[in-house]
Amino acid sequence: MKLTVNGEEHELLAVTLAEVLQRLDFEGDWLATAVNGELVQKADRSSYRLQDSDRIEILSPMQGG
């Protein structure tokens, strides 16, 4: 499946958002995720089914001031 993750195109064998995070080595309870501009809660990632050409944003908090 072709997916765009944080602006980069990927060809991944993944069905759910949780699988994408695992395949791309994103870990942590502090991640925020969105698919096609819609926030996806952590509890919903394992059941959130992706479609070809979805745009995924994976965000992590930044420190500093």
Rank of each mutant, 00 (worst) to 15 (best):
L13R: 04
R45F: 04
H10D: 01
S60V: 09
L3M: 11
A34H: 05
Q22F: 10
V15E: 15
E19L: 02
V20R: 00
K2L: 09
E57M: 02
V20P: 03
V40D: 02
G64N: 10
W30E: 09
D44T: 02
I56A: 10
E8H: 13
E11S: 07
E27A: 12
M62Y: 07
R45P: 07
T33N: 04
Q51E: 13
V20L: 05
H10P: 02
E9W: 00
I58K: 12
S53C: 10
V35P: 01
A14R: 06
I58H: 05
L50K: 00
L50N: 00
T33C: 09
L59N: 06
G7D: 06
A34Q: 05
I58N: 09
E27Y: 08
L3P: 05
I56T: 09
Q41D: 14
T16R: 13
N6K: 02
Q63T: 03
D44C: 03
A18K: 06
E8V: 14
Q51W: 03
L21E: 10
E57D: 05
L13G: 09
D25E: 14
L24P: 05
N6M: 09
L3D: 03
S60I: 03
R55T: 12
M62F: 12
G7L: 06
L12I: 11
P61K: 15
S47T: 10
N36C: 13
E38W: 08
T33K: 00
L31T: 11
A18C: 11
P61N: 07
K2S: 13
T4S: 00
S46A: 15
T33I: 00
R55V: 15
L3E: 09
L21D: 13
V20W: 02
T16D: 10
E9R: 00
E27Q: 15
H10E: 04
L12T: 11
G64D: 10
G65E: 10
Q63M: 04
L39A: 08
Q51V: 10
E38H: 13
M1A: 12
M1V: 07
R45A: 07
S47A: 11
M62E: 02
A18G: 09
D25N: 15
W30D: 12
S53F: 11
G28E: 06
N6F: 11
M1D: 10
M62W: 03
M62N: 05
G64A: 04
A43F: 04
S46H: 14
F26Y: 15
E27L: 07
A18S: 15
T16K: 14
A34M: 04
L50S: 00
G65M: 13
N6H: 12
G37T: 15
